[in-house]
């Protein structure tokens, strides 16, 4: 409860128990959060980005095929301007090569993207791999 008078507000001295309960819960949450952040600050090494690709789906579309993929960053640092190269290969021959650039792939997180290939994919391999990144 707060009483307002002449532009100043005064809290009650004898508050309802729910104020204390809320305060206690909040204190626990804040302490827990700070504890987690602090513990990770100590224990986690700032490993560089560790990028890996997982193809999610391949679907035919009007102009060819759409290959949807996830890019995972297992490292503890975020990667920026991540360039992912996707190639359609027939044995050793590169039929088609495309690029997708991700603004950010956050640490320990994933992002999703897709390649649009115009070539026919039957009997051919699709190779998708990350090609480079910058520090954010």
């Amino acid at each position: 409860m707060t009483r307002s008078d002449k532009g100043r507000h005064r809290e009650r001295h004898d508050p309802h128990w729910i104020e204390w309960l809320t305060g206690l819960l909040s204190a626990l949450l804040v302490a827990g959060m700070l504890g987690w952040v602090g513990w990770e600050a100590f224990m986690k090494d700032a490993t560089p980005p560790d990028l890996s690709i997982a193809v999610v789906a391949t679907e035919p579309i009007a102009s060819g095929h759409r290959v949807t993929f996830d890019i995972h960053n297992a490292g503890a640092t975020t990667a920026a301007s991540v360039t992912v190269v996707g190639r359609v290969l027939d044995g050793d021959r590169v039929i088609e090569e495309n690029q997708v650039i991700f603004d950010y792939v956050a640490a320990e997180s994933k992002s999703t993207g897709a390649f649009l290939f115009t070539s026919d994919l039957t009997g051919r391999q699709v190779d998708i791999h990350p090609a480079g990144y910058t520090d954010p």
């Binding site: 532009g7 005064r10 809290e11 508050p15 305060g23």
Partner: peptide, 18 residues
């Protein structure tokens, strides 16, 4: 102006926690 106060007998951490 518009700031909050505690009555004199209330310790500062009352407001902090509540």
């Amino acid at each position: 102006v518009g700031g909050h106060e505690l009555s004199p007998q209330t310790p500062w951490w009352h407001a902090f926690v509540r």
